[in-house]
Amino acid sequence: MWRQVISKRVFLILVLVIASLSRFSLADLANEENDVGGETTEVAEAKEKKEVKVKPMMRVEVIDPYVDMRTGPGRGYPVFNVVEQGEVVTVIKRKPDWYQITSKNGKTGWTTALQLSRTLKTSGIPVKLPNIGYGQYQKNRLRVGFSSGQFMSGELKGAETFSVTAGYRAMSWLGIELAGGKLYKTDVSGSHYGMNLILEPSPRWSVVPYAVMGYGIMTLETQPGQADVKFDDSKFNIMGAGVSYYLGSNFVFRGEYRHYSVSASKGDNIDEKESLGEWKLGFNTFF
């Protein structure tokens, strides 16, 4: 019994420690960025300018031999204009993987984020466009996703599940997420919600293994037409492992196995331990 209380406390403390860690690491990051090339005065100027002009136009110089301009933000759209090396273009809009630009001759079209990231600002300082490249890039980003699967073992064997998650990637290797979902079986259905930590080392690979641990609550009820049984809410801890596959810079396909250890109190506070296994497939995106 004490072990359970302690494990819960440990989990909560862990969450707090991680959140504070992320805060410090971000502060460090902020300092680093301010130090780059002694741009501090420029930052101040930029801030002042910003007050006068709400949306400054972003102008970049093309350093690739040429940049294709397409009619739409997708590889299927035709190229209708080409911008030459050295020409200055104005960036108007950003869509996934694409930027809308206006060239010197007044033509407006779309170019890939990849091509535009290799350009220079008019001042000659490389432009840091919010660009592709997974791993470090997902740090400090929000994550949302959903997954679906089935229980493989335990009393809920055969139950189909889905869950939705929303969270925050505090560090390149660590995320916190809230999860909620439902499960369905012939005789019972239910919902579950909880909080998970996701540990994802080596995020620069396109296939990345990860571990997940979490804590949550599950409620069950009998399906209509079945003998009515009252279930108490049960608490569970999860431990799991899976593999992420980056389909795009910010889009992940996940396959995972989870072990639930559920403690349900039945009747006179007698704790019953139940082990469940679940496999699931899902998608996650970062923004």
């Binding site: 805060r23 971000l26 902020a30 972003m58």
Partner: peptide, 20 residues
């Protein structure tokens, strides 16, 4: 921590102003 990010990126990365 989110606020810290906004502060640190404000100005240095003008890219924030691009309409997404």
């Amino acid at each position: 921590s989110t606020v810290a990010v906004a502060d640190s990126t404000d100005g240095v990365l003008q890219t924030i102003d691009i309409d997404t």
